[in-house]
């Protein structure tokens, strides 16, 4: 088994560490860096609890080796709040009761982040398909959709203010 020294920018901070080739990114984040906000819910890339952003794109960190992320940029739930300001998605999940046990929430938020970046005004149907790779067992999804809509509105307002 090969070992590799990898450098990854995670939430704006650079980490250099030696990893075994087979170490999954999810375990690198959780066990080695103690970034435990990203969760593990299955072994088959089915549940999306481990969703993070790799160079801005949402991926499942349980189906990616840490070594593949060498020299890439990663964002996890821990990096979403900026300068003490919650991201509109975080606010949305709180305001619209988009979470219960909280286990799927980080993955949902990370997925929501890319979804809104690509499509700032998604319809309900687009959100439903957009989060179809994230399972939630508590909420029945309706309030998650509202949470993402809340964030979309908020982000659009911010955009307008800036313009």
């Amino acid at each position: 088994m090969s070992k590799h020294s990898i450098t990854i920018e995670i939430n704006g901070e650079s980490f250099t560490q030696e990893v075994d080739s087979r170490k999954l990114l999810i375990h690198f984040l959780r066990d080695d860096l103690a970034l435990t906000g990203t969760h593990i819910g299955c072994d088959t890339s089915s549940c999306g609890a481990c969703t993070i952003l790799l160079n801005g794109k949402s991926i499942k960190a349980c189906t990616f080796f840490a070594v593949q992320a060498n020299n890439q940029k990663i964002e996890t739930i821990e990096g979403v709040e900026q300068g003490g300001q919650l991201h509109p998605l975080q606010e949305g999940f709180h305001q619209e009761h988009g979470l219960q046990c909280g286990f799927c929430t980080p993955g949902m938020i990370m997925r929501g982040k890319e979804l809104l970046e690509k499509n700032p005004n998604p319809t309900e149907e687009e959100i439903r398909w957009g989060i179809s790779g994230n399972l939630c067992r508590c909420t029945g999804y309706s309030n998650i959709i509202k949470s993402i809509q809340y964030a979309a509105n908020k982000l659009n307002e911010k955009q307008e203010e800036a313009a």
Partner: peptide, 12 residues
């Protein structure tokens, strides 16, 4: 493409 797995999987 749209019928394959889910958005995260399709990103990779």
């Amino acid at each position: 493409t749209k019928m394959i797995a889910d958005p995260q999987v399709r990103n990779l």
